[in-house]
Amino acid sequence: MRPPPKSHTIYSYCADPSQIEGLKWLSCYLTTGKHINLYWSVLTVLALLAITAPAALAFGFGGATAARSRIAPLRWIGKTYIAIVRGVPDIAFFLFFVIALDQGIEYLRHQALCPDWDQPIRQGNDFLVCQAAKMPLGNAPQWIHEVYGFGLAVVTFAIVFGAFAANVLFGAMRAVPHAQIETAEAYGMSPRQTFWRVVVPQMWVYALPGLGNLWMVLIKATPLLFLLGVEDIVYWARELGGTKTTRFTDYPHPDWRIWYFLALLIFYLVFTYVSEKVLDLLMQRLTRGQATTGGEAQRKAT
C-alpha cells in the first residue's frame, strides 16, 4: 500500500537541501519520502470512508430489520444493538472493540488450531494463545500487520456507525406511510414481499437527512483511526511536525506541528463543506415529486 521512496527522485535540484532556499526548499521538503507517506495516509482515510460507509449501512440495515422483526429474540438483539450506543462515549467503544475483536479472533483460532493446549488463556495480566493462533502470525511481513490493523479499524467503525445507521433506518422504515403497507397487504403480498417491494424502496427519502448527517459525523470521526493504532494523518502530522535537527534530517526545522494541524483542520473543513453541498443537491433531487413538505415547496416554487 505504501511504497516508501528512499531518496529524492522527483526534482533533481533537491540533491543538496542545505544550498537551496525559499519556495524551492519548500518544494523539496514537501516531497520527501515521509511526506509521501503522509499523502498516502490521506488516501487511507478516504479508503476507510469508502469501505466503512457501505459496511455501516449494511450493519444498520441488518440492525433495523432485526429491530422490527416479528421474532422476539431477533427483535431484542436489534433493539439492544441500537440502544447500546446511547449513553456511552463512542471513543470508549473504539478503544474497547479493537482489543475485544483482536482477542476474540485469536481466541477462536486458538480453539480451532490448538485443541490440546491445557493452560488457561488469561494468566494474570496476560492474554496467552498458542503461536499458531496469533493474528497476524509472528513471522508475517509488515504490510500484513498494517492491513490487519486497518481491517480491524474498518470493522470497529462499521459496528459503531452501523448502530447509528440502524437507528436512522429504523425511523425511516416507520416513516413510510402506513396506507402503503396496508395496500400491499390488500394485494395479497406476504410480509417479506411488502418489506422488499414497498417499504425498502420508499424509505430512502426519509432516511437521507439522517444518513447525510451521519456521513458528516463519519468524516469527523476519521482522525480517531489514530487511536486504533493505524498510521494515519494525525500520526504523520505529529511525526513530521516535531522539531528536527541536522543530525537526523537534511531539512532541519523547529516545531511545526501547529502548521501541520492547521493544514489538517483546513482539509477537514473543505471536505465537510464539499460534502454538505453535494448532499444538498442530492436531497433536492430525491425530494422532487415526493409527497413531503420539501417536495411540496419545490412544486410551489416552479
Binding site: 494525525v234 505529529r238 494541524f261 483542520l265
Partner: peptide
C-alpha cells in the same frame, strides 16, 4: 472540523 483535530 473534528474536535480531535481542534484539540491537537
Amino acid at each position: 472540523s473534528p474536535l480531535f483535530i481542534q484539540f491537537f
